[in-house]
Design a protein around this nucleic acid. Structure first.
Lengths: 272, 272
DNA sequence: TAGTGGTCTAGACCACATA
DNA sequence: ATGTGGTCTAGACCACTAG
């Protein structure tokens, strides 16, 4: 046994917190066997905070307890809590505001929204965006979708299709697949009524918060139906963006295929 | 005067380091007038380390002094140096290796390379890549290039054009513009001879290290010459990637336009 | 065994927001 | 005046690497 894991915040001895090596929490780490990775205390605290977020103990937009409160609750020093929160803030899961507190990030802010909508106008002027929903229906998951969303083949999924326009110019076609179990009662009407970003609705109405997403991008020619929707000639090059979105615990909860018309907009990215 | 800036590591009084507010270093911050942003000590240390890196005091791949050494040099505690290095490591400018030291990041590693080459094979198998250089010549900067590279119109620039192939399949056409003053002696021969990534050559032979880049991505149809180079039909949709790369101090040092054939490769991206 | 980065703690004080 | 996050310090000890 190369590493000695100790119990986390149920520390047996009074001074056990000092120099504690703790079992992984939120890490890819293997189960307790040999080869188990060393995981520092602050990562375990991070894991515990993530659990609380996942189970909805603190809702998006709300403040979480102060660092000193959390330190008392977990029986560690403020510095250790601080480092856990630092990482969560770097992951854009929490938001620190000096003097006010630490808040659960929410999709009800433009700031967050543009993390997931990377299309920017060639000339800086950001036009009003508007969604037109083509359909919203429930069906059995096709094999590919089931695999990506980690469902059983045949499980219920919701398919949403929409056209996003910027200043009356149709620019994006989205085809969105969601696990049916999580999105009971999602209808085209509710989507159309809702003001604000779609992920805001998902978060407020269905308790599903998108944390992270992976995208694969290609250039493809517009087919007949897509061309009609975007008001361009068939064969026009479009940006195809395949996205898989994840919530807490890296659970996939959305599969999306977008087609972007990039004659006056571009996909922006930063390489760090 | 809302904020009292103090002298940094030339601290006058022996205990001046404690609770020091220091002039901005590396921040967007305004000059010393009213409205000057508060900048903590560790940010100033970060700025000093960046200066040392910029002036080449420590070369890519080398170790920088230990945290304790730097703490002594800057007359601050190890924790403050640590926080500065933390940020530089998060920026992928430095690389920490426990037990060994902290190293200047280098482009001579696949790990770093794939930060800047985001094209991945649809099936996991990454094929050998090979560059064919079409031309490398010096000319006067066109207006657009001069503007992007912050040169005077008419200053010398180097234009490199190449085709990148994966396993004998031509996949990328790059058109690269570099400031002539920084890349004296860059020729097609030196490019062709060089084994390894282009940024590795830039770093080793010309002392220019790319730190960060911004990209704008569009879908465009292949023109006649591009189609011929990529062995596809004219009009085939291609991914157009416009990149501006920066060195230390956010100085632009490369403008690049890439055309990617995405029938068997895709541009991968993560939204955090 | 020595040196390096990594973790954890405890306490002091600063900056910001609010009452 | 109080409570929050933010900075800085000092010291102890752990984990990893290498001679």
């Amino acid at each position: 046994m190369p590493i000695k894991p100790r119990s986390p915040c149920l520390s047996a001895s009074p001074d056990a917190a000092a120099a504690a090596g703790a079992a992984a929490a939120g890490d890819p780490g293997a189960p307790g066997g040999p080869g188990a990775a060393f995981s520092p205390l602050y990562r375990q605290i991070k894991g515990l905070i993530l659990q609380s977020l996942d189970r909805g103990e603190w809702k998006p937009g709300e403040a979480i307890p102060s660092e000193l409160d959390l330190a008392a609750r977990f029986k560690v020093s403020q510095g250790t809590v601080r480092k856990a929160i630092d990482e969560l803030a770097a992951d854009n899961i929490l938001l620190r505001r000096q003097g006010k507190g630490t808040f659960v990030a929410t999709h009800h802010e433009d700031r967050v929204r543009f993390r997931f909508l990377r299309l920017a106008p060639d000339n800086g002027k950001q036009a009003r965006s508007r969604s037109r929903f083509l359909e919203c229906r429930r069906l059995r998951a096709p094999a590919e979708v089931a695999k990506v969303l980690e469902l059983r083949a045949g499980d219920a999924v919701v398919l949403v299709r929409r056209v996003l326009s910027f200043g009356d110019i149709p620019t994006v076609i989205d085809e969105i697949w969601l696990p049916g179990a999580l999105f009971k009662g999602l209808t085209a009407e509710r989507l159309a009524e809702y003001k604000g970003p779609m992920y805001g609705l998902f978060e407020s109405e269905f308790g599903v918060r998108m944390i992270r997403a992976d995208e694969k991008i290609r250039a493809v020619p517009a087919g007949e139906p897509e061309a009609a929707l975007l008001d361009v000639a068939p064969g026009t090059p479009l940006l195809q963006v395949e996205r898989i979105s994840f919530t807490y615990g890296d659970r996939p909860v959305e599969m999306r295929r977008g087609l972007y018309l990039t004659s006056h907009y571009h996909y922006r990215n930063s390489l760090n």
